[in-house]
Design a binder for these strands. Structure first.
Lengths: 215, 215
DNA sequence: GGTTGTGAATACATTCACAGCA
DNA sequence: TGCTGTGAATGTATTCACAACC
């Protein structure tokens, strides 16, 4: 079982949860285009999946559609945002402000979706006090206090592979509940901690499996 | 079915292919630590998965172990690298050299694994001719010629969501076989094209589902 | 004794197909 | 008529458990 897609404990299958954000995103687009009702068939066409899967996925959480009509987009989106917990803001801290870390802090996609990076840490004292955007880089010693004070629940890890486990352990010790890991290694975490790994090299390496035949 | 993990056509399950690079990576680490034999049990402990799954996964491709002993690490790694097609180099081009694109081009993880970004394109003519590392940004019009001349088979997409489908179509038209997509949207691709989506926001949004209960 | 490789068994996910409703 | 929601059926993935072997 892939660590990154491990089920914690829930009657809702993990794969279903992984698809909900995809639904939310496309519903957002549809709203902007001014559509207000959509059927599972049409949604399936847009997302390249079967209408049955969409209906079944949604049925784990309630009955959001109207027979004969389809789903009211604004309503469904609202429900999904609540289900996913993305109807509120989340505060994250970044650990590691090397090249990768700086790219993450500058990534413009997080804050429009309610994910705000409100602190940054680095082991290297030469980086302490430097400003990245409007965030001042702090030493690792500040981690416990800052996490507590700023009510941070998500840790973003952008350190070299060898340091990742240590950093993840520290984050968990100090109350972080979820980890977005960019280090090219999958740290071990206890079952109540949710971790997602972002690893473009693994993606490429599973891609070439299918490409090697063609040339 | 998640677009990004779609099975093309093969007797080997896609999930298995997705795990092979994880095996390859840990075997690499083990070699560096000087280990030379490992059992599926030990490997399972390291990767937090069942030994049976590892053995079954590997059994799709051959018989690499020795009963009573385990797997010779160097041998198994070599086989996996061949199976995955990562025993050779791959050339990629980047489309979109905004903040995200520049971060990708500077990402130090690709070239040690044999993935080389050898060209970069952007729609904005003010960026043409600028140097990123040792790559000169080209106009979109150069795409066909450059892909052909430099034998590029992988396209990395780092453009805004609205342009992604157009860029993906152009890449495919001009012979790209695999796409690593960083745009926050999943473009449609024909079945013979392999696409992997890197989307940290989707990862976060499926994470908060499990976190929202805790606080 | 220890470990692989693998059919069989189990668990899980997707799709079908249709009753029920607008 | 058109579409949802959902049990039942099918398809897929994981795990078990053990014969074969070092």
């Amino acid at each position: 079982m892939l660590r990154s897609t491990q089920t914690i404990h829930s009657e809702v299958p993990e794969v279903v949860v992984l698809r909900l954000p995809i639904y939310a995103r496309v519903l957002n687009q549809l709203i902007e285009e001014g559509t207000d009702v959509i059927s599972s068939q049409q949604l399936g066409d847009l997302l390249q999946m079967t209408p049955a899967q969409i209906r079944k996925d949604l049925s784990y959480f309630g009955r959001f559609g109207k027979q004969g009509r389809g789903y009211n987009i604004a309503f469904l989106l609202d429900e999904l945002r609540q289900i996913l917990g993305i109807d509120r803001g989340w505060r994250a801290c970044l650990v590691g402000v090397g090249r990768l870390g700086r790219a993450i802090i500058n990534y413009p996609g997080f804050s429009p979706e309610g994910f705000e990076i409100v602190a940054a840490f680095d082991r290297d004292h030469r980086r302490h006090g430097t400003l990245l955007g409007n965030i001042s880089v702090e030493s690792m010693e500040c981690l416990p206090k800052t996490i507590e004070e700023r009510n941070i629940t998500i840790g973003i890890v952008a350190v070299p592979a060898v340091q990742a486990q240590m950093v993840v352990d520290a984050l968990i010790t100090h109350g972080i509940q979820g980890i977005l890991n960019y280090a090219p290694v999958a740290p071990h975490v206890p079952p109540h901690i949710i971790m997602r790994n972002i690893d473009p090299v693994l993606s490429l390496q599973s891609m070439t499996f299918y490409m090697k035949e063609n040339l």
